[in-house]
């Protein structure tokens, strides 16, 4: 039994906007064990980035966490002061952002931007120690040492992204969040970056939270997966189980709309309709209006909660009728 590294419990967060509250994260709970890779998948706008930001307590100013707790290595992060958070960030948990192309400050050299983080968390290190470590990390992600002395605009997208991975590893975190790290890259580079992340994770025994809208990528990358829809987790379980026997209609729809990983010819079924607006509170199943398997009996108005239908495989109440 590996131990639980990150424990998220009943996390709810909304954005305060002029049009009303955007309920971006609703009652989300999950655990990530040390060394495990956890996937978060869902259509864009379903709240994946919001979850990621909340984990680092880096959510925008207009966001409010209404309830829930985030425990990293037993330490509660929600409500921690900015100064204490600074010690946790990058030291225990680091992130590769969605817009990682713009993650670098354009006027500071790459190496300096990495060393800056190391100075913060390893103040006792000498400059040479830091440089050696960066060189080692660069080798690991397949970059040349000379990149340290370059400015961001001198690198290609793929190189920048590799450097971001090196940056994320620079302070020996226990867990890395990768939020759609390959979205802006072309397909060949995407594959390389995915392999790089996978390799590094195994090599260093890190935990990984991999976020993507692409369920096929998640399948390759993760041990455990959570499917998100409109701010909630609708299904969660070991990746293999969820792929072989998806329980929630949304998971099935997602799998059906993706070309099969094993290469079987299958007719692609696209999902009709739009995800619901997160501004209005939705009672009961938020997927019901788009659900291809919808029955008259299924639109429970009671609050949704996840039910364990087989060991470690959870699915939300709505789909129970069709199990």
């Amino acid at each position: 039994m590996s131990k639980i590294l990150l424990e998220v419990k009943n996390l709810s967060m909304h954005y305060d906007t002029l049009e009303g509250n955007v309920e971006a994260v609703k009652n989300v709970s999950f655990n990530v064990n040390s060394g495990e890779s956890f996937g978060l998948v869902g259509e864009s706008g379903c709240g994946k980035t919001s979850v990621a930001m909340t984990l680092l307590q880096l959510q925008p100013e207009n966001s409010i966490i209404t309830e829930g707790s985030i425990k990293l290595d037993g330490k509660e992060l929600v409500g921690l002061s900015e100064n204490d958070l600074r010690k946790v960030r990058w030291d225990s948990i680091s992130i590769v952002f969605q817009g990682a192309m713009n993650a670098w400050n354009p006027v500071i050299k790459i190496g300096e931007q990495i060393r800056e983080a190391m100075r913060e968390h390893y103040p006792q290190n000498s400059k040479q120690e830091n440089i050696n470590k960066i060189n080692e990390l660069f080798r690991m992600v397949g970059l040349d040492e000379s990149i340290s002395e370059r400015f961001p605009h001198e690198l290609s997208g793929g190189m920048k992204q590799r450097a971001v991975i090196a940056l994320a590893l620079s302070c020996d975190p226990k867990i890395i969040i990768a939020d759609e790290p390959t979205t802006a890259l072309d397909v060949v580079i995407q594959d390389q970056i995915l392999n790089e992340i996978k390799k590094v994770q195994n090599l260093l025994g890190l935990s990984l939270i991999y976020i993507s809208h692409d369920i096929a990528v998640i399948a390759e990358m993760t041990d455990k997966i959570a499917v998100m829809y409109a701010g909630s987790i609708v299904e969660m379980g070991p990746t293999k189980n969820v792929f072989t026997s998806p329980k929630h209609s949304y998971t099935r729809a997602l799998l059906d709309s993706t070309p099969s990983i094993k290469g079987e010819k299958k007719k692609l079924r696209s999902l009709d309709g739009e995800p619901p607006s997160l501004i209005d509170k939705i009672d009961g199943c938020s997927f019901a209006p788009r659900c291809p398997d919808r029955e008259i009996s299924c639109n429970p108005t009671e609050h949704m909660s996840l039910i364990e239908i087989e060991p470690d495989h959870y699915v939300d109440v709505c789909s129970q009728g069709k199990i």
Binding site: L56, L58, E82, L85, R86, K87, V88, R89, W90, D91, S94, I95, F97, G99, A100, N102, A103, W104, N105, P106, V107, I108, E116, A117, E120, H121, L167
Partner: peptide, 23 residues
Amino acid sequence: DYILTARAKGLSQKRIRDRHAAR
């Protein structure tokens, strides 16, 4: 985005302000 990166790295407010934003 790089301001977010700087915050995620755990840099101090002053450093983010002076070294990243103001620069």
